[in-house]
Write a protein that binds this DNA or RNA. Sequence first.
DNA 1: AATTCTTTCAACCGCAACAAT
DNA 2: TATTGTTGCGGTTGAAAGAAT
Length: 401
Amino acid sequence: MGRSPCCEKVGLKKGPWTPEEDQKLLAYIEEHGHGSWRALPSKAGLQRCGKSCRLRWTNYLRPDIKRGKFSLQEEQTIIQLHALLGNRWSAIATHLPKRTDNEIKNYWNTHLKKRLTKMGIDPVTHKPKNDALLSRDGQSKCAANLSHMAQWESARLEAEARLVRESKLRSHSLQHQLGNSGFAPSSSSASTSPPILNKADAPPMPSRSLDALKAWNNVGWLRSNEGNGAGIATGLESPTSTLTFSENAPPLLSSGLGENTMPMIEFVGTSGSSEGAVKEEGDQQDYLPEYKDGMENSMSFTSNLHDMTISMEGTWASESLRTSSGAHVPVGDVNIAEEGFTSLLLNANSDDRSLSEGGGESNNGEVASGSAGSDFYEDNKNYWNSILNLVNSSPSDSPMF
DNA sequence: AATTCTTTCAACCGCAACAAT
DNA sequence: TATTGTTGCGGTTGAAAGAAT
């Protein structure tokens, strides 16, 4: 079944590369370029398969590779992008100049993942494993609520990423259909990646992705503060939560969305069952299956929803996110947990100490932290701002979206 | 010093997407 | 349209290095 591995040919070497082999490969590529990887080994006098040569070049020999320890900034970028993109290492790598996807993947698996786990954060969902950390009633209740919202947020981010990626591709192809000769397709050599809109080529139009993310921030906490019936906050009170991004967005969204159309997404979750579904209305039904798959992956959290029902007796918006001082934590900013833990992770050299201070019982049992309402809000704003900045500064050829 | 255990990371494998025919 | 070839990606493996006993 399938094709046989490329290295099964007799006489082809496998395993670690010798300095001599490196030298041959390097010399050949410097002189001729790699051309067809399949043909390269024989031309370069290497007893390797083309795939092995390509890997050696892209992960090790390429001159624009930085090796060595990851900086704090790089770690932060990886964690944030992983929260946003999941295991899409190549996409993450485009935001870390001179780092390869393989290196990032290894670093994640050997360092960051372990550190997150050690700190009680699920490295897959980037949410705290709350009940293991927090025991007191108030704490576990708040943590459970935050966790639930973080899960919704995680699912939303997945959807958002897909939506925006599709939108970009769509707008790109639309430009070609319109016959606008001013926009040439990015001719990125032999890449088989889908055409990516080049910043240089693109008209100066606002990015939908940013709008969407910004809109979420706006909508989320504005609505929760309003306490009206349509928003996320109240939606979560019911067994079925609905988040709608509509082209008929209300005026309050005008800062982010006023002039731009937003495809309508209806995110219908059923907190009492293990099923979730995403509906989208408008012009983008065609990617729904994939989109839905992603959502379902992201919604794997439903398995532990029963943990939360214990603490979900009150109303979600009005009770669960109220701090001890009575201030409301914006519901749209539920990733305060993530930011808190991310900061903790990055700032802490001693994991144990961080654990006890960050998630422990040193704050007299207060829910979240006593005066943390505004701090959490600010921190979380910073968290999303930093992600937005990352997105904003995406390389033009980034496959991120 | 010898042995065992753990960690790291380069390299491999299989699959999917895309291009060429 | 079907088939074949090429490339890129993400998951996994295993040898080497380092730490612990």
